[in-house]
């Protein structure tokens, strides 16, 4: 049985989350069996880059400015047309709308927040993050149709496929109920969106004031990293809200998280402890963050960070 992937397009090309969802489905197909077919909505450029990650076919519905309700109708039609039993989507901002809506339309067993590939040894089980990154749960998914939505950055990208065939699919999806009036990109300077970033430099109240973020931004720039912050820092307006990570901010899972002047409160850790490698710079050797860290420097950020920038420049210069 085929696996269908809802793949989000931006400017005709799959997004990073879409590539990840296709990569995940490709991996899952090794145990579940079947082909990986992607379904897309809106203008597509070639195969949108989806074949490279393992899609053998891309179904495209040429609906402009579709809302989540319309997208779910397209996904439902694609499930029926392909006879797929499993739908994979990213649990990103769009996937959080499309996957559940499709699950209702398909009356499917549905799990969101999945972080591991399916285990098919007895039915279908997947692992999912729970308690804000403090634990995982093994979830059994029943039902004739199944829908799983995976956490961005939990699986990674696995390229190496060839171009996929693109077919159009026509669906009576009705009219859009949501009208977009305005789009405000988070960063106009070309820096990396935090949820997708592989490398993240983050700072907390230890930096004393917003005027001291220059060195944080410079370090991020040198590394090609995104910037983040602790909650009090965004609450007092030193940094924008979208940089706030933690239990009540966003949860991220980069390969490298550098925390500067952040104490490591449990609510902060909840958003970052799935990072592969954690580096902590804090002048207090008793800061709880050191217990969650892989590497640490006990020292004053105002002395350590400039040296770090120089060392990174040295490395990149080689």
């Amino acid at each position: 049985m085929s696996i269908l992937v809802y793949a989000e397009l931006k400017d005709g090309k799959g997004t990073k989350s879409a590539f990840e969802a296709v990569s995940y489905a490709k991996k899952a197909s090794e145990t579940v069996g079947g082909d990986v077919i992607a379904v897309t909505v809106g203008a597509i450029n070639g195969d949108g880059g989806l074949g490279n990650y393992g899609a053998s076919k891309v179904l495209n519905a040429a609906i402009d400015g579709a809302d989540g309700g319309q997208m779910a109708k397209v996904v439902e039609a694609a499930m029926n047309q392909t006879g797929a039993g499993l739908l994979v989507a990213s649990n990103d901002e769009t996937g959080k709308v499309v996957a559940p809506r499709a699950a209702v339309r398909l009356n499917a067993g549905f799990v969101a927040g999945v972080t591991g590939v399916p285990d098919t040894s007895g039915g279908l089980t997947v692992s999912k993050g729970v308690f804000s990154g403090k634990a995982t749960a093994k979830v059994q998914v029943d039902g004739d149709k199944k829908v799983i939505a995976i956490v961005p950055n939990s699986f990674g990208l696995h390229a190496g496929g060839s171009d996929a065939a693109v077919e159009s699919i026509s669906v009576d999806a009705g009219a859009a109920k949501i009208t977009v009036k305005q789009f405000n990109p988070t960063s106009t300077d070309g820096s990396i969106p935090l949820p997708e970033a592989d490398l993240v430099v983050s700072a907390g109240r230890g930096l004393k004031g917003p005027e001291n973020w220059g060195m944080v931004e410079e370090l991020a720039r040198e590394l090609g990293a995104a910037t983040a912050c602790s909650r009090p820092v965004s609450d007092i307006g030193w940094r924008p809200h979208h940089e706030h990570v933690g239990q009540t901010g966003i949860a991220i899972r980069p390969t490298l998280y550098i925390a500067i002047g952040i104490s490591g409160a449990i609510q902060h850790l909840a958003g970052v402890n799935s990072s592969k490698v954690i580096v902590v710079v804090n002048k207090d050797p008793e800061a709880p963050f050191f217990k969650a860290a892989d590497y640490g420097i006990v020292g004053d950020a105002f002395e350590v960070v400039p040296k770090l920038i120089e060392a990174v420049k040295g490395l990149k210069g080689n």
Binding site: A108, G109, F110, V111, T125, V130, G133, K134, A135, T136, A137, K138, V139, Q140, V141, D142, G143, N273, K291, A292, A293, D294
Partner: peptide, 13 residues
């Protein structure tokens, strides 16, 4: 149509 089979804590750092 789903059920939690078991929970696990992350491996200690």
């Amino acid at each position: 149509q789903t059920s939690i089979v078991s929970y696990a804590l992350p491996p200690a750092k």
